[in-house]
Design a protein around this nucleic acid. Structure first.
Lengths: 338, 338
DNA sequence: GCCATCAATGAGAACGTTCTCATTAAGAAC
DNA sequence: GTTCTTAATGAGAACGTTCTCATTGATGGC
């Protein structure tokens, strides 16, 4: 590899000091004469000089790079969140290293080490098991994706899942459903707040509805789990007339499970999902779902982080839950037995 | 921010030189005595020392970071490719900065500048308009995602799209279809090789089938375009009995277009897509499609890049097209008029 | 005992930028 | 003419690691 020109080469060619070259390339035009500036720019162009960000980072202790740690970029929920982060971060001259924890704590720890060693300026993370102390120990700004309950010092951006569940169940209630099942996922270690489950319970209390434990199924977040859960539900003596699934992938599995048993959706059983991934609108019938503001979540998290990296030093973390929205498509209808 | 311990602090505490500390933390155990090594590691632990990768990068001119430039992480095709790259790259101690060109040349150029200034060790790119010279001028290893026709010096990894089209059309031919339409996307500037279109033409020549230009529709790659194209096709005096769409998003649009006209799929018209995105398996009927090996493409590209970054200096680029596979699902059947 | 070899370690320069403090020259005020 | 102020620029240290060459001490061979 040919040696690349440095500011010393530029300084020699322009007949100025390297400090002056530095002033010119960093845009400090108020303290450099036009004549000097012109000579420097001429030399820069002639030599094809390009600033070495690594050297600058060593001197300033700022890399203009951040890490985004999400469970899995191939999970349809996350690309839009990532895109929101990337867009907002890049607009301020930063770059994003995106990593996949795969819901594994060891991987999460590995990435925290990476962040420290590379002197990244910030971290946006959907935590698996990382404790508050773990995250404070990297000594850079951290923004939490999801609810920030366990991280009071840090900013967090999540969706108002509880309100979303309420909206979904209310939609079903207004259609006339009284026997509504819940297919939900297993909470991760740090998410002991089982927000979907709790919201389901609260909804039943609010509307003086009896809870039937047979109508609550907890499995991992996969399409296959949704399929199996639906089979379980539809084989009950008294099956539900509607099902709320904790995310669209579970809901798609539930839809396939119903159809495999020749149950018609929505005539025989209604289904509501959550997330609004692309596939939710392509099923037949297309899924009624709760839209989570994925891109906006990413943008907001990035904004919080950028503010922190710019010197904002608020001790108490900011916690925001972005509102969800109901998208009524083809998977819900009044129950047959009205 | 508290000052972090450096190797000078460790050296002082362990009573050795900083060169010796460097030898220990870089694992050069063969030339350091066990006693010395132990003292150093003790001091490292006591001080909580962590290597500063930025300083190392400045000295060695290696960042152990690469850039991955794709059109859009939210397009369902790309997350798996990205995941393949990330997994293979990380396994060798590198980190990946993923950027979105949005099919815009100016963004692409912006990212090339970013790569140069940050002294990244390599680049994997699905090019928009970047020329061979552009890519050679960054003076680091580059691997092309897609066919590498315009970049003979660089390694490239693509899918064997032509063979995939052939397979799709053959599947339809074997079902008895003779009037097969093609919905394809507009080629980008550097992809004048219209591989899907050319493969469609070649297939017809091979089987002595007449080409009807009315059955070839070229629009941008969106679901809406697929919907409109299907409407156009089904309104012909002599509509096709089958449609091959250039990707799954087009195919999903085509499916919705047919259903909106009360055409049954696959009874009235068969549809084949390409890519095998998640949504292709969730439509009803689920889409018969050509599976592109997305994750494997990413892994292979990363392997080529890693080899280059390790010193491989082959002048002629390696070009590989990974095989595609037919996934027969519910959107294809024999034509009605047999 | 002397010399050569090798293992183990140390000293200091290098990487390329940024920043701080010093210097110089020009202009204005007295 | 002298003094003060300000704009413009320069010199050199700093950032934290890696690497090269030098040094030292121990051991083995003659």
């Amino acid at each position: 590899m040919a040696k690349r020109p440095t500011i010393i080469d530029v300084a020699k060619l322009a007949g100025v000091s390297k400090a002056t070259v530095g002033r010119v390339i960093n845009g400090q035009n108020d303290i450099v004469s036009e004549d000097t500036r012109s000579r420097v720019m001429h030399a820069v162009k002639q030599l094809g000089y390009e600033r070495n960000a690594v050297a600058g980072s060593l001197r300033t202790d700022r890399t203009f790079m951040i890490a985004l740690a999400i469970p899995d970029i191939t999970n349809p929920f996350w690309p839009e969140v990532a895109r929101g982060v990337q867009d907002a971060i890049e607009a301020q001259g930063y770059a994003t290293v995106t990593v996949n924890t795969d819901w594994q704590p060891e991987r999460e720890q590995k990435y925290l080490t990476m962040v420290r060693r590379n002197r990244f300026d910030g971290l946006i993370v959907n935590p698996i098991e990382a404790s508050r102390t773990d995250l404070l120990n990297i000594h850079i700004p951290v923004v939490i994706l999801g609810s920030g309950g366990y991280y009071p010092d840090m900013d967090s951006v999540g969706s108002d899942t509880a309100a979303g569940v309420d909206t979904a169940l209310n939609h079903l209630l207004e259609l006339g459903h009284r026997r509504i099942a819940l297919i939900t996922g297993r909470p991760s270690r740090n998410n002991r707040v089982r927000s979907r489950h709790d919201a389901y319970v609260a909804f039943h209390a609010k509307h003086n509805l009896q809870i039937n434990q047979d109508l609550i199924i907890e499995k991992d977040f996969s399409e296959h789990s949704g399929y199996e859960a639906m089979h379980q539900l539809l084989h009950l003596d008294n099956p539900p007339t509607a099902v709320f699934a904790a995310n669209d992938i579970l809901a798609i599995g539930a839809l396939k499970g119903a159809q495999a048993l020749d149950w018609h959706v929505p005539e025989d059983v209604s289904i509501v999902g959550m997330d609004d991934i692309y596939a939710a609108a392509t099923t037949s019938p297309s899924l009624t779902t709760i839209i989570k503001p994925k891109y906006e979540t990413g943008v907001k998290a990035a904004e919080y982080l950028l503010a922190r990296m710019s010197g904002d030093n608020i001790d108490q973390g900011r916690h925001i839950l972005l509102p969800c929205e109901l998208a009524v498509r083809g998977s819900t209808a009044p129950p047959r037995d009205i």
